[in-house]
Simulated scan of single mutants.
Amino acid sequence: MKKNILDLFLEKVLNVPLWIKQVIYLKLGNEMKEMACEDFLRNHPDDIFSTFVPTLTFKGKTELTERKCGLDNNIYNFLQGCANEYSMLEISVNTFLSMEEVAKYYELCLEQNFIKVPESKEIHAMAGYIAGKFRTGEYFKQKGVISVDQLQQAILANRDAQEAGSPQKFGEILIQLGFVTEDDIKALVVLKEEAKKRFILDYNTVPKPETTFSDDSQKYEEEIANLKDENLKLKRKMLQLLELVKRNGHQ
C-alpha cells in the first residue's frame, strides 16, 4: 500500500486563503446543485459511501495476515486499507482504483465475512448499487425508501409499458408512481457514472511526506499495468463464479 497522500492533498487545499476557499465553495456548490446531490450531502453526511470506513472482522484480519485463500492482490490491498482505518475514498486513491472497483471488492469481502456489515442502510444500498449488485428499484428497497409491494408494483408497471410498446426506464416508472423524485434518480445516475472514474493524485501537487516516493515513472507505469491485469483476472473469476451460480440455479 502507498502512503496515504489524500490527507496531504486536502491539507494543502484547506490551507489556502479564505478568498480562494470562497470561490471553491461556490463552484462546488453549483456543481452539487446541478448533480442533485446538495440535499443528500447536507442532510445525510454520515451516509456518504466514499467517507465510510469499513471494519475488518477477525476472519478478515486473519486472512490479511496469513493469506491462505490466495486471493487477488487488490483484495489484500483493500483489506490492508480497512486495517489502516481508511475510508472508501482513501482506499480508492491509495490503490489507484475507481470507486466502482472498490465497491466490488467491498461486496466481495462482505460476502466472505472479511468485513463487518454496516449499520447504515444507505451505505449497504449504495455499495451494492455502485458495485452493480443492486439495480435502481432494489437500491431504493434496500435503502428503505420503497417497500417490497411498491417495488413489485413498479415491476408490473414496467412490464405493462413494455408490452404496450412504450418501454420506459425503471427510474421513470418509480417517479410516475410517486415513489421517488426526479432529483433522487438524477443523483443516483450521476453517482453511478462518476464512480467509474479513477482519481490519481500527482505526488508533485502535495507537500513532501516523511517517506519519499520514487520518481521512476517506469515503475509507476508498471504498477498501474499490474493493477489493471489483476483487475482483469478478478473480473474473470467473478464471471466464472456467476456462471456457476446460474448453472446451479437451473438444476
Rank of each mutant, 00 (worst) to 15 (best):
M1V: 12
K2R: 15
K2Q: 12
K3R: 12
L6C: 09
D7A: 13
L8R: 12
L8A: 12
L8N: 03
L10S: 03
L10V: 15
L10F: 11
K12W: 10
V13F: 05
L18H: 12
I20N: 06
I24M: 12
I24Q: 14
G29L: 09
G29R: 08
M32N: 04
E34P: 01
E34Y: 00
M35S: 14
M35T: 04
A36V: 02
D39L: 08
F40M: 11
R42C: 07
N43R: 15
D46N: 13
D47Q: 14
I48Q: 13
S50P: 03
T51W: 06
T55G: 03
L56D: 01
K59R: 14
K61E: 13
T62W: 06
E63S: 03
L64C: 01
R67W: 09
C69K: 15
C69V: 11
G70R: 12
L71H: 05
L71W: 08
I75Q: 00
C82F: 04
M88W: 02
L89I: 12
E90F: 02
E90S: 02
I91H: 04
T95H: 03
T95L: 10
F96D: 10
L97I: 02
S98L: 07
M99R: 08
M99P: 05
E101I: 05
V102Y: 00
K104Q: 07
K104N: 01
Y105K: 06
Y105S: 04
E107G: 06
E111I: 02
P118Y: 00
E122I: 05
I123F: 00
H124V: 01
A125Q: 05
A131K: 06
A131E: 03
G132L: 01
G132H: 04
R135Y: 10
R135N: 11
G137D: 06
Y139N: 02
K141H: 15
G144E: 00
V145T: 14
I146A: 07
I146F: 03
I146Q: 04
S147R: 11
L151Y: 10
Q153I: 11
I155S: 01
I155A: 08
I155K: 13
L156N: 15
A164L: 05
A164F: 01
G165V: 02
P167S: 07
F170L: 10
F170H: 07
G171D: 04
G171V: 02
I173E: 00
I173K: 10
L174E: 05
L174W: 11
I175H: 10
G178E: 07
T181M: 08
I185L: 15
K186W: 11
K192D: 02
E193A: 13
E194N: 15
K196F: 03
F199K: 14
L201A: 05
L201C: 01
D202G: 09
Y203E: 09
P207F: 08
P209A: 01
E210I: 14
T212S: 13
S214P: 00
K219S: 11
K219V: 06
Y220P: 00
E221K: 15
E221Y: 14
E222D: 13
I224N: 09
A225Q: 11
N226E: 14
N226D: 14
L227T: 11
E230S: 13
R236Y: 10
K237R: 13
K237N: 07
Q240Y: 09
L242K: 15
E243S: 12
V245F: 05
V245C: 11
N248E: 09
